[in-house]
Write a protein that binds this DNA or RNA. Structure first.
Length: 742
DNA sequence: AAGACCGAGCTTTTT
DNA sequence: GCTCGGTCTT
C-alpha cells in the first residue's frame, strides 16, 4: 500500500509524531500523502480514528478528502473529523457558545447581512457614509478579527488616529448588534472559537484530548486567527501536520498570513520539514513555464519542482485585437478538441482574473452551444428570492435575528412601511426587547394606530409555523411558507423571464431541503431546521462543481486553486488586468505583484496536458475601452515554450445581440444542465426520434399526463413545453423528461 | 406606502 | 455597461 509512494511522500506518511511541515509543490500528490498518512495512523500506529482531525478551506476539498479517506481506511473512517475551518468552528460553538453568553442556536450572517447591519449602525451613529464607507468599516473589522483584535484592543491601538477611533466605535457597536441579534459573522466563527478555547480550560482540554492528530491542508492560506486555533488545539500533543505551498499563497487580501508557513519552524522548533518536489500532474513544458514565472519572486522557500512526465506540447499563445475574438477563439478551440473526440467538455477550464470577464465568454459559449458552468459571481444563496425564503425560515428558527425579520416583514407586500417599522423599533429599544418581540406586542404600541392590524396576521403566521417546527420536515416547512405567503404565486403572476428564473431557483431550494433530509438519514443524524440553515450558510459556489457532469468550467484563478484540468485556458493575460492595475500602482506594488505572480503560477500549474494563453489588445472594462500590452507574466515564460506568437486575426462577426438573447432565453436559468455521464446521452437527432410531437398527449413520471404545446430545438437537445393537467405548463429538456406518448 | 426614475460607483480576488 | 440605492411622485 505504501510502495507506490515516492521516498519523500513515504517519509511524510511515516512521520506521524510531532509537528511536521510538508511543503507540497503543485501537483505533487499531497492529498495522497494525507490520506495514506491517515490510514497509516490507524492501521500501523493503532490511533483511534476518533482522535484524528483534517481541516481544509472549502467544503469541496473536505468532501474529496473524506471520500478518499473512506476508500483508503475501511473501518472507522466515519469517525475521523474532516471538515472546513468554518464548519469545525460552528460545530464547536453550537455546543459551547453559551459559555460566552450567546444562545447555542445563533445565526450566521453572510456579507449581505453584514452590510445591512452596518448601514443600520452608521445611521444610528449619524456617520456620513459618503465620507466613511460601510464597506471600509467592514473591511477594517474583518481584518481586526483575522488578527484577533477585539474592539477594546482595537480602540487602544487607535489612539491619535481619528479614522481608526471611529472604526473602533463602529466595531464595538457592530459586535453589540450582532450579540443582540444572536448572530455571528464569518470571521466571528473563528474568532469566537479561539476566544472560547482561550477562556475556558475545560472546553480546551476536551478538544485537545479529542484531536490528538491534526492535519491542515492549504496551510499557506491560514490567517492569524486560524493559526491560533490550530496552535491551541495542537499544543498538548503537538501532533500537527500542515501541508502547503508558499508559492500558492493567494489570499493575502483575506488576511492570509504567509508567515504562518514561512516561519513554521520558528513556531515549532522541533518541526520536521519535508519537501514534495516531484510533480505528477503536468508536462515538462507546463512546469518549465510555471518555474520561469515563479522564480521572479523573492523570499520564497527554495523548491525545485521536477517531473518524469513527457515534454508535451508547447503552450499555445494567442494575442487578439479584441476580447470578442479572444472569446471566440477559445470557444472554437474547445469545440474543435471535443469534436475530434480526444477530449470532453469537462476536460476544459477557462480561467480569468476577474469575474466580469465571464460574460463575454458566456455569450460565445451560448452561441456555440457549448455546455458550461460558471463558478463564482452571485452565490445561489445570495439571490433575492432564496434569501427571502431563508429569512422566513431563520425567523421561525431564531426570533432574535432582527435582520431576518425586517427583511421579510413586508415581502410579499403587506402594507407595512418604513414609518411603521421605525415605530416598532422605537418601542423595541424602549422596552429593550427584540424587534420580533415588539411586533408580537404590536397592540401595546400606541403610536401604531391602524398599522397594528397589518402586523397581527404576520405574527400569527410565524407563531403557527413555530409550533410546527417539531413535527414538519424542513421541506414541508419551506413549502408551507411558500404556500402561505403566496411568494411563488406572485412570481407566477409576474410572468417574466426573470420571475421564471426565480421560480426555478426556488424549486432548486426545495430540492436542497430534500437532499439535506436524505443526507441526514444516511448519516443517521437528525434533520433539523437549524441544521439546514447552518449548512446553507457555509456553502461556497465552488462546492457545487460536479466532476460527473460534462461541461466546460469557467472561473477565476482564485477559485481554480486545488483543481486540475487536461486543457486550461488562461484568458485576459494583459498588463493592467492581470497583473491588475491596482497591484501595479499600489504603494506596496512589489509585494502585490508577487501575490499576482503566485496567482499566475497557480493558473499555469492547473494544466495537465495543454495550456493555452490568450489576451486581447483592446477590451471593454467598466464601459470604457482599454488598450493593453501582453502581461509581464507571459514575458517571463521562456520564449521557446510558446507557439502562436502574436497573431493578427481578421475581426470576426460580432454575435448578433438578438441571436444571443434568443439562445439564452431557450436555456434560461440553468443553461445546459447535462445528464450524468454513464447514462446514455441522447443525441440531438431529429424531432421524429422523440416519438411525440406538438399536440400529442404525453405522460411524465412526476407531473402526470399533459399535452405537448411546443418543441424547440436547442441544438444538442429539444426543449419541450407541456401543459400538464395537474401542475400546469412546464418547460423541460427532452433528454431529461423521458416523456412517453399515450 | 408603492412604484418610477436617476445617479453613483463599481471590478481584484472570497471562506 | 450594469447594478444598486436613494429620492421623487402618486
Amino acid at each position: 500500500m505504501y510502495e507506490n509512494l515516492n521516498s519523500m511522500q513515504r517519509e511524510a506518511v511515516f512521520q506521524t509524531e510531532g509537528p511536521v511541515l510538508i511543503l507540497a509543490g503543485a501537483g505533487s500528490g499531497k492529498t495522497r500523502v494525507l490520506t495514506h498518512r491517515t490510514a497509516y495512523l490507524i492501521e500501523e500506529k493503532g490511533v483511534n480514528p476518533y482522535n484524528i482531525m483534517a481541516i481544509t478551506f472549502t467544503n469541496k476539498a473536505a468532501g474529496e478528502m473524506r471520500e478518499r479517506i473512506d476508500e483508503q481506511v475501511g473501518y472507522g473512517a466515519e469517525s475521523i473529523w474532516v471538515s472546513t475551518f468554518h464548519s469545525t468552528c460552528v460545530r464547536i460553538l453550537r455546543r459551547h457558545i453559551d459559555r460566552l453568553g450567546f444562545d447555542n442556536n445563533f445565526t450566521i450572517y453572510d456579507s449581505d447581512d453584514q452590510k445591512t447591519l452596518m448601514k443600520d449602525i452608521c445611521k444610528r451613529l449619524e456617520i456620513d457614509t459618503k465620507i466613511y464607507k460601510e464597506k471600509t468599516f467592514l473591511n477594517a473589522i474583518s481584518s481586526a478579527k483575522d488578527e484577533l483584535l477585539d474592539p477594546i484592543t482595537f480602540a487602544l491601538q487607535a489612539t491619535g488616529d481619528y479614522t481608526k477611533q471611529k472604526q473602533a466605535t463602529v466595531y464595538r457597536e457592530y459586535q453589540d448588534a450582532l450579540k443582540r441579534n444572536n448572530a455571528l459573522d464569518f470571521d466571528d466563527l473563528i474568532f469566537k472559537t479561539v476566544e472560547l478555547l482561550k477562556t475556558d480550560g475545560e472546553v480546551l482540554d476536551y478538544y485537545q484530548e479529542r484531536f490528538r492528530y491534526i492535519m491542515v491542508d492549504e496551510y499557506q492560506d491560514t490567517n492569524t486567527a486560524q493559526f491560533e486555533l490550530i496552535r491551541l488545539l495542537a499544543s498538548k500533543y503537538k501532533n500537527l501536520c500542515v501541508v502547503g505551498d508558499d508559492d500558492q499563497s493567494i489570499y493575502k487580501f483575506r488576511g492570509a498570513n504567509i508567515y504562518n508557513i514561512l516561519n513554521f519552524e520558528k513556531h515549532f522548533p522541533e518541526a520536521r520539514v519535508i519537501k514534495l518536489e516531484q510533480n505528477y500532474r503536468s508536462t515538462q513544458t507546463i512546469l518549465d513555464a510555471a518555474n520561469g514565472v515563479i522564480k521572479n519572486n523573492q523570499g520564497r522557500k527554495e523548491k525545485a519542482l521536477w517531473t518524469e512526465n513527457p515534454q508535451g506540447e508547447k503552450i499555445d499563445f494567442q494575442q487578439f485585437e479584441t476580447a470578442y475574438e479572444e472569446a471566440d477563439y477559445i470557444a472554437r478551440d474547445i469545440q474543435k478538441k471535443v469534436q475530434s473526440g480526444d477530449y470532453t467538455y469537462k476536460d476544459c477550464a477557462v480561467l480569468y482574473r476577474t469575474n466580469a470577464q465571464s460574460r463575454l465568454l458566456e455569450e460565445r459559449f451560448v452561441v456555440s452551444n457549448i455546455p458550461y458552468k460558471i463558478v463564482g459571481g452571485v452565490n445561489f444563496y445570495a439571490r433575492k428570492e432564496i434569501k427571502d425564503l431563508l429569512c422566513y425560515l431563520k425567523t421561525i428558527d431564531n426570533a432574535r435575528d432582527d435582520l431576518a425579520v425586517r427583511r421579510i416583514i413586508n415581502v410579499p407586500k403587506r402594507g407595512i412601511g418604513a414609518t411603521t417599522l421605525a415605530r416598532v423599533q422605537e418601542y423595541a429599544n424602549q422596552e429593550d426587547i427584540s424587534f420580533y418581540n415588539a411586533l408580537r406586542a404590536a397592540d401595546e404600541i400606541t403610536t401604531l394606530g391602524k398599522a397594528a392590524a397589518k402586523i397581527r396576521p404576520f405574527v400569527l403566521f410565524i407563531q403557527t409555523m413555530r409550533s410546527k417546527v417539531e413535527y414538519l420536515s424542513v421541506q414541508e416547512l419551506l413549502e408551507e411558507v411558500i404556500e402561505q405567503t403566496g411568494y411563488v404565486k406572485e412570481l407566477e403572476a409576474e410572468d417574466t423571464e426573470e420571475s421564471k428564473a426565480r421560480m426555478e431557483n426556488i424549486d432548486e431550494l426545495i430540492s436542497k431541503t430534500a437532499a439535506y433530509q436524505e443526507k441526514c438519514e444516511e448519516e443517521g443524524t437528525p434533520a433539523t431546521l437549524s441544521g439546514f440553515l447552518e449548512e446553507v450558510a457555509l456553502i461556497a459556489d465552488i462546492d457545487s462543481l460536479d466532476e460527473n457532469q460534462d461541461y466546460v468550467v469557467l472561473m477565476t484563478l482564485h477559485s481554480a486553486k486545488g483543481l486540475e484540468f487536461p486543457q486550461v485556458y488562461l484568458s485576459g493575460m494583459e498588463d493592467g488586468l492581470f497583473p491588475s492595475y491596482m497591484s501595479i500602482v499600489s504603494d506596496d506594488s512589489v509585494a502585490e505583484l508577487e501575490e499576482e505572480r503566485r496567482l499566475a503560477y497557480v493558473g499555469i500549474t492547473r494544466a495537465k496536458q495543454l495550456l493555452t494563453i490568450t489576451c486581447a489588445k483592446q477590451r471593454m472594462i467598466r464601459g470604457e475601452t482599454q488598450y493593453s500590452k501582453v502581461s509581464r507574466f507571459v514575458r517571463e515564460i521562456p520564449r521557446e515554450l510558446l507557439t502562436g506568437a502574436v497573431r493578427q486575426e481578421k475581426v470576426k462577426k460580432m454575435p448578433q445581440q438578438e441571436t444571443y438573447m434568443q439562445a439564452k432565453k431557450t436555456f434560461s436559468a440553468k443553461p445546459f444542465a447535462m445528464p450524468k455521464l454513464g447514462k446514455d446521452l441522447p443525441k440531438a437527432g431529429s424531432v421524429e426520434e422523440l416519438g411525440y410531437g406538438e399536440g400529442d398527449r404525453v405522460k411524465h413520471i412526476k407531473f402526470g399526463e399533459g399535452t405537448v404545446k411546443g418543441i424547440v430545438s436547442g441544438g444538442r437537445d429539444f426543449e419541450v413545453t407541456v401543459d400538464f393537467d395537474k401542475v400546469g405548463t412546464k418547460k423541460m429538456f427532452a433528454s431529461f423528461a423521458k416523456l412517453k406518448k399515450i
